[in-house]
């Protein structure tokens, strides 16, 4: 997994609440058996009208936000389906950091697994960042998200500190494969399985033979 240390990029504002993972990536894109290539269908219902024409009002179609690496979003971002395709689609679009007042639980854990940083900030702070990304001469300007120092530098030179879970920060900064870390505890897992078998002897006859 790619490490996340610091990112300097254009930020695109999407100040909508409850943006669900069906909006981020529609179900028809889920038939793939790969993790890449999902960017083309990302936010499709927002980017295109019923006839397939690009909507100019949609931020993702505007030249000043092309190649944006940071998404400034509304509350409860990523709600709904557990599809990790939403995180893959964002990565495929080039997004590596989402800033919002709150995130859905499953989406947030999917992001960590894909080197995507979710920054939670108070509504008023997110609103102010979204304004900077949308208005005046700062629109299309560069923001820097520094995970090491835990702060965001805005195009006008402002600095916004943020808090982040220490374990999550460590994983993102190291780009760790956490399956390897769990497998290193194989002895403890085995001991747990044996303990459990003794505590719940009735499981012996609880057996689903499917094949």
């Amino acid at each position: 997994m790619e490490k996340f240390l610091s990112l300097t990029a254009v930020a695109v504002p999407l100040p909508m609440i409850n943006v669900d993972t069906d909006i981020i990536i529609p179900a028809r894109a889920l038939k793939t058996t790969a993790r890449d290539g999902l960017g083309t269908l990302a936010f499709h219902a927002l980017r295109f009208d019923g006839e397939g024409n690009a909507r100019e009002v949609c931020v993702f179609n505007q030249a000043r936000y092309r190649g944006a690496g940071i998404l400034i979003a509304g509350a409860n971002f990523g709600c709904g389906s557990s599809r990790e395709h939403a995180a893959w689609a964002l990565r495929d679009m080039g997004v590596r950091c989402v800033i919002a007042p709150s995130f859905a639980d499953i989406f947030a854990s999917n992001c960590v697994k894909n080197g995507l940083l979710c920054v939670t900030l108070p509504q008023a702070t997110v609103d102010a960042l979204a304004r900077l990304a949308a208005e005046g001469n700062t629109a299309g300007g560069l923001f820097t998200v520094d995970l090491e120092r835990q702060c965001i530098t805005t195009p006008d030179g402002g600095v916004v500190p943020f808090a982040v879970d220490a374990a999550k920060r460590g994983k993102l900064m190291a780009g760790l494969d956490d399956i390897g870390a769990t497998l290193a505890r194989a002895g403890e897992i085995e001991a747990f399985e044996q303990r459990r078998g003794r505590a719940e002897p009735w499981r012996a006859s609880a057996r689903l033979d499917v094949v």
Binding site: S82, E84, A87, I106, S109, N110, K113
Partner: peptide, 8 residues
């Protein structure tokens, strides 16, 4: 859970 967690 997401797919990375499915793998996990």
């Amino acid at each position: 859970i997401g797919t990375s967690e499915v793998e996990h």
